[in-house]
Amino acid sequence: QSMRLITQNQEQRAQYPAEAEAVAALAEAGFDVSRSEYQAVGIDLADGLRLLSTGAFDMATIQVGSVAKDDPFLEGIDLIGVSTNMDDLKSAVDAFRDAFNARLEEKFGVTAAAIWPFGPQVFLCGAEMSSLDDLDGMKVRSFTASMSTLLENLGATPVTLSFPEVYPALQRGVATCGVTSPTSSNTGKWPEVTTHLYPLSVSGSVQAHMVNLDWLNGLSEDARAAFEETMAAMEAELWDVAINTNGTAQSCSTGGECPEGGIYTSYDMTLVPVSDDDKARVAEISVSAVLPEWAEKCEASYPGCKQIWNDTVGAARGLSID
């Protein structure tokens, strides 16, 4: 059974080994896997779902936030400010999984074989900061609508930048801050161009390994069982990576302990302690602005969407959109 995989996990990333292991396990089970990377073949992450849906690829790693252009409902799995630690996020993802897959199947002919996060999305700034108040008037890189909503509510100016321009933009001050996970920022060398790390998490940047249903249904029973088992194991491992190595990466970035010979580089950023006031503020903006805006968009393309969210993620996280 052949499988064309397109992935965003490049070799230097923390998530690479888990995926490589899964690919090796699939090869062991008789799959003929050919692997491509988005960046190398010039495909925009935001188009991943379209490519999967047409059958150009059999499996793809999908950045849920960026394919939300084709269906805002999908972003409901990890809205800004809803799940700010990995345990909360896990409960939200598990609650949402069935609704998420049902929607993917019905609209795109696709299903998620593994859903996992990059890790806490935190602030990295190239200027003095001690709390979210300091973001007022700063230029902060944003990549989704709900991120911009949060930033605007904090008084910051969202600057939309394509990924290759983020590092030079931070270096030269086109943007003063960026939001990403400690692992991605460390391997992406962001600490070279920023000084302060504020580990207040606003989301988990949920990703999914999705597969084309025609391909999945074409598998023999044995192959399918092997496939599902491998993906479940990979998902568990990727959650571990998100939970455990982000701490290591953060420690490395901020002059703390850093294992020799690993993928992380030592830097001496200032680690700014997170205040409870700021946590409350993000939660408040989430409820008052991010969730209602999302629900409005979602209802427009998927009537009943709000109710589904309230019954799943909302119930798991103790939130409700009116």
């Binding site: 960026s66 609508a145 427009a300 393309s301």
Partner: peptide, 18 residues
């Protein structure tokens, strides 16, 4: 056609109907 079928709206600050 795909864009129309999906009802795609960019998930950016502009939220352009694609």
């Amino acid at each position: 056609q795909t864009t129309l079928r999906f009802g795609s709206i960019t998930n950016t600050p502009l939220q352009t109907p694609l």
